[in-house]
């Protein structure tokens, strides 16, 4: 492992806000908020009670909180997640347990743009309007994802989720 890589070890707990200009791997416990400029990895065994934000978010541990990514969120087969996900691409592997709402596509980007331009009202409104149809489209498949994995971990949801991700 590169020694500049930040790792929160399995016997370490952080309460508060963690920000990173690079990547971050968490094997321990974090309560609060995590925002990462690059890849955020929640390893198997990690317990997170925080909102997560990153470019790429890879989850194999337990997370309670909402997750946003500017590129992709992937729930791997040992992941247990409760919370909403917003990202251009979302992958949920077979075996992952998930409950929450998923918003895929450009929704997140549009929302971020709207947030960023909050001061300048006109562009914000335009961005919000632009986000609406995409948001509606993203809402439709959400209940399927929400209802499936909790009870049947090996249900077909991951397959289409992956296919959908690939199509982009």
């Amino acid at each position: 492992m590169a020694d500049k890589q930040t790792v929160i070890g399995s016997d370490t707990q952080i309460t508060g806000e963690v920000r990173s200009e690079g990547g971050l791997e968490v094997r321990g416990r974090i309560e609060g908020k995590i925002s990462v400029a690059e890849t955020l990895t929640i390893a198997n065994g990690a317990i997170i009670q925080a909102d997560l934000d990153g470019r790429v978010v890879e989850i194999s541990g337990a997370v309670v909180g909402s997750i946003t990514a500017s590129e992709v969120v992937r729930l791997h087969d040992k992941a247990r997640v409760v919370g909403d996900i917003a990202a251009p691409r979302v992958g949920i592997a077979s075996g992952a347990q998930y409950r929450g709402r998923v918003e895929m596509g450009d929704v997140d980007v549009a929302q971020r743009a709207a947030k960023g331009a909050a001061a300048a009202k006109a562009p914000a409104k335009a961005a919000a309007r632009a986000a609406e149809p995409a948001a509606a489209a993203a809402r439709a498949p959400a209940p399927r994802v929400a209802s499936v994995p909790a009870r049947r971990a090996d249900a077909p949801a991951p397959a289409w989720a992956r296919k959908k991700a690939k199509r982009r």
Partner: peptide, 9 residues
């Protein structure tokens, strides 16, 4: 790591 800032415990 050097790019990280933590506010908390």
């Amino acid at each position: 790591g050097s790019g990280i800032s933590i506010d908390g415990e």
